[in-house]
C-alpha cells in the first residue's frame, strides 16, 4: 500500500529540519519530489517593480533549474513579463501554469517567456504564492517537462514549498553569533552598492555620487571584500540578505 501523503509530508519536514545548509535542504527536496515528476525548483521574493536586473537576480533564494535558464531569464528581463509572477502577486492560491494560460493568451511577450521556459524542460509547472513574515510576496515554483498533480499532491507541494522556503530563509539568515561576522559598510560603500543593485555601471555610480569611476570601483571592491563576494550579483544578494541595503 502507498504511504499516506500526510505521513510522507511529515517525514519530509523532519528531513528538512536536519539539513544544515540551503544547498542540502534543496537537494533533499528535489530528491523527494522527483517521484512525482518534478524536475526543478525555483523560488524567491518578488522584487519591487523598477529595480535593476542584477538586483532582481539577487532576490532568488532557490534555483534548481536547468543550466542557463535563470541567467537567460534575468538577462532578457523576463521577470517583468512573466505571467506566473503577475498571477502570484494578485492571488494567494497555488496554481498550475496551464491554468493561467488565459492570462497570457493575448500577450506575445508573456507567451514568449512560457515558450522559452519550455525549451529548458520547464514546460509545465506549479507555483505556490507565499508571504513572508515581513509582508513580502514570494513565489515557489516546481517545474517539469510534464506534471500531473492530484488535488492531494497539490496540497502536499503547497505545504512543502512553504516549509522549504521558510527553512531556506532561516538558514540564510545565520546570525553573527552562529559563525558569520557582522559586516559594517561605510555610508559611501552602502550608497555605491545600492546603485549597483539598481543596475548602474561604475561610471554611472561615479556620476551619481559625484566621484570618479575609479572611486566608485574602489568602494565596490571594498564591499566585495567585506562580504566575501566573488561577483556583483553575489555582493548584492548578500547585502540584501543581511539587510545592509534595501
Amino acid at each position: 500500500m502507498l504511504p499516506k501523503l500526510v505521513d510522507l509530508t511529515y517525514d519530509l519536514f523532519r528531513s528538512f529540519d536536519r539539513a544544515g545548509t540551503v544547498e542540502d535542504l534543496n537537494a533533499c527536496l528535489l530528491r523527494a519530489v522527483a517521484r512525482f515528476g518534478v524536475e526543478s525548483t525555483f523560488a524567491g521574493v518578488i522584487p519591487l517593480p523598477g529595480i535593476g536586473r542584477t538586483a532582481q537576480a539577487a532576490h532568488v533564494l532557490i534555483d534548481r533549474t536547468p543550466p542557463g535558464w535563470s541567467e537567460r531569464y534575468f538577462r532578457a528581463g523576463h521577470l517583468d513579463r512573466d505571467p506566473t509572477i503577475r498571477r502570484l502577486t494578485t492571488d494567494a492560491t497555488p496554481f498550475l501554469w496551464s491554468e493561467i494560460e488565459p492570462l497570457y493568451r493575448e500577450d506575445p511577450a508573456a507567451r514568449r517567456v512560457m515558450d522559452e521556459a519550455g525549451d529548458f524542460r520547464l514546460r509545465q509547472g506549479f507555483t505556490v504564492p507565499l508571504v513572508t513574515l515581513d509582508g513580502r510576496v514570494a513565489g515557489f515554483s516546481f517545474g517539469a517537462e510534464r506534471l500531473d498533480l492530484s488535488p492531494e499532491l497539490r496540497g502536499m507541494l503547497h505545504l512543502i514549498a512553504s516549509y522549504v522556503f521558510g527553512r531556506s530563509l532561516v538558514l540564510s539568515h545565520v546570525p553573527a553569533a552562529e559563525g558569520r561576522e557582522p559586516v559594517q559598510l561605510t555610508p559611501r560603500e552602502r550608497e555605491a552598492l545600492q546603485w549597483a543593485a539598481a543596475g548602474k555601471s561604475e561610471w554611472e555610480i561615479g556620476a551619481l555620487m559625484s566621484i570618479s569611476e575609479h572611486g566608485a570601483e574602489k568602494h565596490l571592491r571594498s564591499v566585495h571584500r567585506k562580504l566575501g563576494a566573488g561577483s556583483r550579483t553575489q555582493a548584492v544578494a548578500e547585502a540584501l540578505r543581511r539587510g545592509l541595503i534595501i
Binding site: 500526510v6 509530508t9 513572508t132 513574515l133 514570494a138 496540497g155 505545504l159 512553504s162 522556503f165 521558510g166
Partner: peptide, 22 residues
C-alpha cells in the same frame, strides 16, 4: 490558512502537519 505555515517556520516553530489542506 496555509499562508501561516511560512510565518511559523520563520518564527522557529517546529511544525508537524496533521492533514493536507482542504
Amino acid at each position: 490558512n496555509p499562508l501561516w505555515l511560512l510565518r511559523l517556520v520563520q518564527l522557529h516553530f517546529r511544525v508537524t502537519p496533521l492533514g493536507l489542506p482542504r
